[in-house]
């Protein structure tokens, strides 16, 4: 028990002293994760649209070659950035520029470099999620849009992607939460996110475990809030199940426009049906 009390005391001391540093770290982590997930989603959506441009046998040859090249490029991008550790990608991109230009050019802005790296990484995952989302939409939706004369781009932006995005929203949430945690590897290029705060603080005073407890609680709080918000967004996107009938002229009331009483109420025919059956027995 006295160990627990000691732990609480240590946490209290750390929080008292380094509160601003922890909070600043959390803020940076959230900002990076949010920006990178958003940009990653855009990259993923673009890849999705480009990947699904229809290509028929009788299309002109240059178009077919161009599409083929495009698909190969996207495939390479996805496989490379999905298949290598983000920490290495960060080192790779961050140090490649000064290496090739003899230090003439380098990333002065750590924020920009971090967002770039995490976005590219997220985009590679999102490209596959978006592809899955697009496949999941009934081909009839595409045909319906084509039949009224929409182009591929119009079909994608107004019909397919809105439905696909709804379907991959849980996946976007996954990616965001992964980003909140995995941006911790950005300390390698000197980005001061939440985990970097921890490294700095324990470097000064050796209170490893109490600081780790704060980190754990902090990360959990950030991800829990994110899942909550995402579920809310999903609900909002689904919209309400009820809708208003617009009755302009009461004489036009036709069969089928009868609004049903609440389920389970005395006037509900559905419940009566079952009730009747039971009485009959």
């Amino acid at each position: 028990m006295d160990k627990l009390a000691k732990l609480m005391q240590d946490i209290g001391i750390l929080w008292e002293k380094y509160r601003m540093m922890y909070l600043n770290g959390m803020l940076n982590t959230l900002g990076l994760a949010l920006a990178a997930t958003a940009i990653g989603c855009i990259i993923g959506l673009l890849c999705g649209i480009l990947n699904t441009i229809p290509c028929a046998k009788n299309d002109p040859l240059p178009k077919r070659i161009l599409l083929k090249i495009l698909r190969v490029i996207i495939r390479i991008y996805v496989e490379v950035f999905r298949g290598t550790p983000m920490m290495l990608q960060a080192v790779f991109i961050f140090y490649a520029l000064p290496y090739f230009t003899d230090n003439a050019l380098r990333f002065d802005n750590i924020w920009a470099a971090s967002i770039l790296i995490v976005s590219i990484n997220t985009g590679a995952y999102m490209a596959e999620s978006v592809r899955g989302g697009i496949i999941s939409i009934d081909p009839g939706q595409t045909e319906g849009a084509k039949a009224i004369g929409m182009t591929h781009f119009q079909t994608m932006t107004s019909v397919i992607l809105p439905q696909a995005i709804r379907n991959i929203l849980p996946q976007i949430g996954n990616n965001y939460i992964i980003n909140v945690k995995d941006t911790s590897v950005m300390f390698i290029i000197g980005f001061t996110e939440f985990f970097a705060s921890h490294r700095y603080i324990v470097g000064i005073n050796n209170k490893y475990f109490p600081s780790a407890v704060i980190e754990m609680a902090g990360y959990l709080a950030m991800t829990l809030i994110a899942s909550g918000v995402l579920r809310l967004v999903e609900k909002l996107m689904d919209g309400s199940d009820s809708y208003e009938l617009v009755q302009e002229d009461p004489l036009t009331m036709t069969a089928g426009t009868y609004s049903h009483p609440k389920r389970g109420s005395n006037f509900d025919e559905r419940s009566k049906e079952y009730g009747g059956e039971r009485e009959g027995r």
Partner: peptide
Amino acid sequence: YRSHVGMVFQSFNLFNN
């Protein structure tokens, strides 16, 4: 061309969103 030739499908194909 398709915008001049309307089509009604067996499976409706209304935009669900």
